[in-house]
Design a protein around this nucleic acid. Structure first.
Lengths: 127, 127
DNA sequence: TATTGTTATACTCTATAACTATA
DNA sequence: TATAGTTATAGAGTATAACAATA
């Protein structure tokens, strides 16, 4: 299990540098929803970090044109984060690369792979 | 699969802060071997970062008395990293906490857990 | 000449605390 | 008074390039 997590870290870092994004930027883009803007605070929660950190991370994603701050109608204090068209495209390619099976798992027999998927589905109640 | 990795990140960060270590410090302590000192460059490789970063990370682990730099007999350029007695104790407790099964997996049936372990063992050729 | 580890530099992430504007 | 997001600050991680000692 530990070994799998370790190898996943390497793949994650490789994909991040492939897209010229920092690790937190990748996590942010992954956590955001192109179909439903979310408040900054929700992203902070997803990234396990303070609100104040999200300001900078979003600043840089916004500079790259991948994300957009919008006002919230119901509460003028909150800013909603929307994924732009360009951001959605990058995000799609990013998720695709991250979804690629780790080499260790890809090498398993088809039966093992199917069994693994079934177990994971039960563990996570659908991903 | 992605969901599992995501939850693992949260647990990892929680354990790191529990031990008052930064994430890279945890990875370093985890990668080092109390029974076999390794060169700085090997740690850099394990952490997927440049040699120059390891200097600072090891500095701080050394300040806390968890790790020790030693000269290498065969090549006076290299420095070997040894885990101190205190470091070994912290490392043991750390690994124990990290080994705790993720809640999602702990909730699986005993049969699923056994099957999962078998598959993982085949995937990683023994962890 | 090439390599190991360090130093210098610049940028990003991180937490904390103080601040602004809302509520 | 409390909350969402920003700004200020300080410490840590990161890559790059330049450097010392050694090979």
């Amino acid at each position: 299990m530990q070994g799998l997590l370790q190898s996943s870290r390497g793949r994650f870092l490789a994909v991040a540098s492939e897209f010229e994004l920092s690790p937190p930027q990748v996590l942010a883009l992954k956590a955001l929803d192109p179909e439903r803007p979310v408040p900054m605070s929700e992203l902070a929660c997803a990234l396990h970090c303070d609100n104040s950190n999200v300001t900078g991370i979003v600043d840089r994603l916004e500079d790259r044109g991948l994300v957009e701050r919008r006002g919230a109608p119901h509460d003028r204090r909150v800013k909603m984060l929307a994924v732009t068209q360009a951001g959605t495209e990058v995000r799609e390619r990013l998720l695709e690369r991250l979804r690629d099976a780790p080499p260790a798992l890809a090498a398993l027999s088809p039966e093992d792979q199917r069994a693994l998927c079934d177990i994971m589905r039960r563990a996570l109640g659908r991903e």
